[in-house]
Amino acid sequence: MRRRARPPIVAVCIGGVAATFFLLPLVGLARRAPWSSLLSDLTDPAARTALRLSLICSLWATVVAVGAGLPLAWVLARVEFPGRRLVRALVLVPLVLPPVVGGVALLLAFGRRGLLGQYLDRWFGITLPFTTAGAVVAEAFVAMPFLVVTAEAAFRGTDRRYEDAARTLGAKRWTVFRRVTLPSTWPALAAGAVLAWARALGEFGATITFAGNTPGRTTTIPLQVYLLLESGRLDGAIALSLVLLGVSVAVLALLRERWVGAL
């Protein structure tokens, strides 16, 4: 009995190594951080613009991911149709595609000469590249899988008998979804949205490739960090990265604990 109560030492060791693997780079950043000039680095107009833009873009990307991803997740979980497996695999593509390639793919689809983009341009005068909307599209592209995967699992995991019960009470589909399915899957959906937001916040490759880099329009924090590194301003880059880290770690720790903890 005592043997069984003991924690599995090998797992604990390797787990400890893995945790350290995540922790050490952060310690490295913190050690090298320009604490004395941190405030001036962050209140620098370019940094402030990037911070604001990052917040706006990542939030809009989350809105897009939730708005489009939730229905998709629901269909994948609830509707039987040929090719469902294929669609499910398709949703995961942005997870494995290098973001830069994702950005090029987005250009070929939504760019000025892209599959759909040429019609957007010709018929509506809409061009996405080099615009904030383009940055949002790029971020939503890489972030949405997190939402879809989480939400689909949640929709699958619900006890459908409650939905049946709601229908016998006269509830139409939308009412069932709003008043029964949504409340019971809410924690998982929220967790998915937070993960998607975090991914959008850190997006670099697809954004710079698809939306380009224009201060105030598409230069989000990750782009600004990269450009600061390019111009040898390591201090500013680290300062901004710390903000990115601080914000996301705080939000993830707080919200994920609170929402997913309820599961």
Binding site: F130, I208, T209, A211, G212, N213, T214, T218, L223, E230
Partner: peptide
């Protein structure tokens, strides 16, 4: 008024 300030010259060529 450039639409984009690319991070390297090849990215400009690509655009």
């Amino acid at each position: 008024e450039p639409a984009s300030l690319e991070e390297n010259v090849k990215a400009v060529v690509a655009k």
